[in-house]
Computed example of a mutant assay.
Amino acid sequence: MVELDVVLDDLAAESAELDRLVAALPAADWSRATPAEGWTVAHQIAHLAWTDQASVLAATDPEAFARQLQTALDNPSGFVDEGAAEGAVLPPAELLLVWREGRDELTKALRAVPPGDKVAWFGPPMSPTSMATARIMETWAHGQDVFEALEVHRTPSERLRHVAHLAVRTRDFAHLLNNRKPPTTEFRVELVAPDRTIWSWGPEDATQRVTGTALDFCLLATQRRHRDDTDVEAVGADAHAWLDIIQAFAGVPGPGRRPKADPTAGPKAGSEADPKAENG
């Protein structure tokens, strides 16, 4: 429970940072377009609220969640959009309340999961701690779209470690989603943290290596940046190939964002950058 408590505290802090930003907005700014095509600030917050509610359902009523999962499988490209659109029409104050209440419900639901149990999800089942980590990832990623839409600088925090950790752990899952065989060898990942220390995963002597700043790695793993617009580098063919398909989220793969050097650059429909393809 200690580890879960720590992750839930970081989830609360990540949510609070975004909450402070949007709570101060005039109503008109909730309709401002974000880098995700067709999604406003309201869509981004509505999606977070929707996914929190889905997480609560998964943790408290597996049978009901199984029905929701089937709905998602029947409409893989539209059900996320529909959930966001439904919440986005709410008045900002009401939407903000729905999101806050859902966050509180999720914290209680994850604490109540029996030790050793896993919670079903749109991807592989997760422990309560892993699900809370996934919520940090998604809150950070969708928050990034909101911060960019409002042209507000966000200082990277140590909470990025959760996002990076999830991206590393889902390496094989990303390969399977792209109909590729996962590599058989471990990778070494070394990232420069916001405090300039090094976060690392994998054997020190691994020949397949990934390096860069934690911020750019997380932007790439959540498909908020094209690989060409990050400082993330790879050594080894398998590591290079991974960076082309890396994703920290559970949804179907999306094409991501075009490089900024592309004169037609912008988010593509169906990408996590949109975030159409993402299911948390």
Rank of each mutant, 00 (worst) to 15 (best):
Q68L: 14
H47C: 10
A24P: 11
A261V: 12
T207I: 04
R171L: 11
W121S: 15
G202W: 04
H240R: 13
L4G: 11
R100L: 06
V168G: 06
S200H: 15
P26L: 04
A214F: 00
D10K: 02
F65M: 12
Q68P: 02
A36H: 01
S77V: 13
I198F: 02
V163T: 03
L219Q: 11
D61E: 13
T107L: 03
E148W: 01
V210P: 10
L25F: 10
V163A: 07
L48I: 15
R154N: 06
D228S: 14
V98E: 12
W140H: 10
G251P: 08
P253R: 02
L4Q: 09
S200L: 03
A66L: 11
E63G: 04
I45F: 01
E151T: 10
G212K: 05
L150C: 10
P91G: 07
W50A: 14
S271H: 00
A214H: 00
D228K: 06
A28Q: 14
R196Q: 14
V7Q: 05
G116C: 13
R171V: 03
L57M: 14
A241K: 10
P183N: 10
C218R: 04
V7T: 12
A72P: 00
E101L: 11
P76V: 09
F173W: 13
V252N: 11
